[in-house]
Design a protein around this nucleic acid. Structure first.
Lengths: 331, 331
DNA sequence: TGAGAAAATGAGAACGTTTTCACTGAAAGG
DNA sequence: CCTTTCAGTGAAAACGTTCTCATTTTCTCA
């Protein structure tokens, strides 16, 4: 039904090879010819068929962005919004289109055709694991892991200085004189969990404080769970004077528990979050948090992937982007 | 490099036609044959090439989800999260994969190969306009519009009862005795804006109240703009006793302005939002808002699109899903 | 003006599938 | 035992491009 390259060739009197060139590499074709080809194409409402093109070139110039977070089985995790934006721009600059795909597509039974074949490479964000990476690798699919660190040969991971961020947050609290500091940790990927928890421990060690395990809690990272967990921690006879929350959603949930318990923030309870997500400055009082350089993460991940797609050998490396403490009103 | 159907055929001793059938329509092939084909495929690490398959079938079984919101030029708008989830499930049930694409891909210059050809149809969400729909139509691309209503021939739009929702919110306020009610309206698509504004006006008319234009403001729908706008409205000599915000983000920004002005919510100022987004129960006090049936929107849009893809003639219609008032603590 | 270089074009194979049509052999029915 | 049916299979033509190689045309410079 739709016009093909042959129809255009017939109409303008050139061969299909020339028409193809007029679209795919315009500088290989005479100015006059190009004009005639474009005129004919417009007349026929023709655009090159991406599928046929991908078929013969063996590449689609598409990159897939797969977000997999267990607690947010939803692709549209707002945390990734700025990251996506940065990935998108980098891809566009390099000549690639970007598609977000649901994690489910990677999990199709018996390896049937899926995302894979239609993408030149994949950015795997979040709680991805070695298994997922290996699955993709087996199909010769270039992969870069984003916001996680996984131990697989020749695998590039782009993440944040999780440990440094946690240390920053905790040192901020200890410098303000806090000694009884709790942590409410979300069950993220092992890499994120352990790094942030280590930052917590080391900061306490620095001031010679031993860890009080009544102040250490791990939860599903939703605001509701956080509220519940914080309520319990705050009803201890000697409650903590500060709580380090391993992301902003948890911090907001914790704030709610404090307000309900009649505590003033930050006078009675100081709270620090992590991520500097949008909500951190929507709540009242505004949240002190650790800002991660999402733009850099996105850009670097995209650049690494494109390099791989274009033939570079992947290195086993973990690239960490910088963190920064944003002091607002909850401390 | 990667194994093709021919390699598998050679290894298992059948023709490529049979191998193809073993994967594409397993019931047309003898049990014993199918096993041998699968064994050979596994040995060679073969999976069918989706591109080649799409080429000959003339379809990809992919559906594109394009979100275009001006104030959120970011694809990962959390409002769409539950909608996406519902679209995804419906598509999966019908045998389609779903890809989110950036609106930018639709806007490529000179109609070069883009999203279009790799998708069997597109769900256009948000502030799409007639132009975008026509562009896609010209490429014979089935389209359904989501969360907007556009006046184009034979176009199916799935949206919410915007007017009814606004009326519900306003009647709730007037029933509680409010007379001086402000509106802070976000600059959304014309359809959303006018419907919600009409609801506001009609509710006031019902109680014989004339519209005080000092209480009517339109803003870019961010929390910051809302805070600023609400501050001004609240510093009027006779400030409103309630404000209807046309989405939850605006409502949160308005709450912040009220708290900063030392007003108690809801005693001094009642606030109603719209959308029932996640943030509405994260803030303190929790937000009264209008819940829209996102699951239904997603499901219906996907069903309509699939029907179109599979040959049904598109109808010109606007399907409205139900709304419901969720009363929380801000009223 | 003519030779050589460079630019523009065309012919046709290739990309990896699906699918139509024809063929084979086995089961079914009388 | 002969016909009819039907499930299973194979041969080969598509699908709409790109790209190599060869050919023709145009340009450059002595």
């Amino acid at each position: 039904m739709a016009a093909t390259i042959l129809d255009v060739a017939d109409l303008c009197g050139y061969s299909k090879a020339t028409v193809s060139r007029a679209f795919a590499s315009p500088d290989q074709v005479a100015e006059k010819t190009r004009q005639r080809v474009y005129d004919a194409a417009r007349a026929l409402n023709y655009t090159p068929d991406a599928i046929a093109r991908a078929m013969v070139r063996g590449r689609t110039d598409n990159i897939g962005f797969v977000i997999y977070e267990k607690q947010y089985p939803v692709v549209l995790n707002p945390f990734y919004s700025p990251i996506f934006e940065s990935v998108l721009q980098t891809c566009a600059r390099k000549g690639y289109s970007l598609f977000i795909s649901s994690d489910r597509d990677l999990r199709l039974p018996n390896g049937q055709t899926c995302v894979k074949k239609q993408m030149d490479g994949i950015i795997l964000a979040g709680q991805s694991d070695a298994q997922m990476v290996m699955d993709l690798r087996r199909q010769n699919m270039p992969v870069v892991v984003l916001n996680n660190a996984i131990d697989v040969d020749d695998l590039t991971c782009v993440t944040t200085d999780q440990y440094g961020g946690a240390l920053l947050a905790m040192q901020h609290l200890t410098q303000r004189g806090h000694r009884k500091i709790g942590i409410i940790a979300g069950a993220f990927s092992p890499h994120v969990c352990t790094s942030r928890y280590n930052g917590y421990c080391d900061a306490l060690r620095e001031i010679g404080q031993t860890i009080d395990y009544r102040y250490v809690q791990t939860i599903e990272p939703t605001a509701e769970h956080a509220t519940q967990c914080a309520s319990m921690m705050l009803s201890l006879p000697d409650r903590p004077t500060a709580i380090f929350c391993t992301n902003d959603t948890i911090a907001v949930g914790t704030m709610k528990a404090a307000l309900r318990a009649g505590l003033r923030i930050p006078q009675d309870l100081a709270i620090v979050g992590f991520d500097d997500s949008e909500i951190s400055h929507l709540v009242e009082p505004e949240l002190t948090t650790v800002r991660v350089d999402k733009a850099a993460m996105g850009r670097i991940a995209a650049e690494q992937l494109v390099a791989q797609i274009e033939g570079e050998q992947p290195q086993k490396q973990v690239i960490q982007t910088a963190v920064e403490l944003v002091v607002r009103q909850t401390t």
